[in-house]
Design a protein around this nucleic acid. Structure first.
Lengths: 153, 153
DNA sequence: ATTTACTTGACTAAAAAAGTAGGTTTTTGC
DNA sequence: GCAAAAACCTACTTTTTTAGTCAAGTAAAT
């Protein structure tokens, strides 16, 4: 699990799809305009998103991309994983080639933490992000407070 | 909030301190040996950790580093933030220089997500990681299953 | 005084991120 | 059939970050 601007771009683009996808396929040019991400960079990202079957494409005029699953069935972790090569595992992964017991100790601790983060991000769906934002918008218009607890599930 | 091997090194090193710190200050050379991180790289990381007052140093023979606070008062988020330059903010941060309402939309969504991740990592202390691992060790020796739910808070 | 260990800064190589360029297919509508 | 719009593909360049090296210090304890 790696967290950089690359993953942020991917999540942002997927959010754009989730928001505008109801109007049929969305072209990368549209996303590029709206989100200010270079078209060719988007192409690279979407090649990977397509490989992982997070999006499907429609070619030709009027074509573009759409989410291949419902937005409440796509979570943030899989988007980030799709565009980032998975982080290199610890050097002594189960092989037991560590001098003392101490070495693997913190390696495993890091692994645990990594898994916790992954599990956390797996619980956040595109849909919940969009939904949460909509609630905020409404609230702003009414000048009220946002109840975040209700926004997620 | 950025998540790379750099932050992982920092967390690993801090965990090493948390585990061995009871025997007085720990030298970077020790950490380097145990965790297989190059000494000079550790020096860079610890310079930043010291700036953020996460560790304090003791010079001279027998010297080294120790946690400047109790391990249950140091969380993972601040360790990662200490060694990573904070990720560049969105281009239109409140200035309202975005063409349509749409542009800032996903930017804010990403900001929300980013904050959620940060909040999550803020809740994980060094102590809880060490503690969790100790429980696992005991369990392995007894051949039993680990109750993760009990390990954290 | 000497050893040990941290401090600082400059430097380098390699990898990843980000962006560019130019082309090829596929599909649609005229 | 043809032109345009879009995905798709490949190779390349630039910039930034990561990871590490080197060297000349400074400070503290024995």
């Amino acid at each position: 699990m790696r967290l950089t601007t690359r993953g942020r771009y991917a999540v942002t683009a997927m959010l754009d799809l989730a928001i505008h996808g109801d109007k049929g396929p969305i072209s990368l040019a549209d996303i590029s305009d709206r989100q200010e991400i270079s078209l060719s960079y988007l192409e690279q990202l979407f090649a990977k998103l397509r490989q992982q079957e997070l999006v499907s494409s429609v070619r030709g005029p009027g074509g573009g991309y759409r989410l291949s699953r419902c937005s409440d069935d796509i979570n943030v972790a899989e988007i980030i994983d799709a565009v980032n090569e998975s982080i290199d595992a610890t050097s002594c992964n189960g092989k037991g080639n560590c001098h003392k017991g101490d070495i693997c100790l913190t390696h495993h601790l890091w692994g645990d933490l990594s898994r916790q983060i992954h599990r956390f991000l797996s619980g956040i769906t595109l849909d919940s992000l969009v939904h949460q934002h909509e609630l905020q918008l409404v609230s702003l218009q009414q000048g009220g407070q946002v109840d975040f607890s209700a926004a997620c599930e």
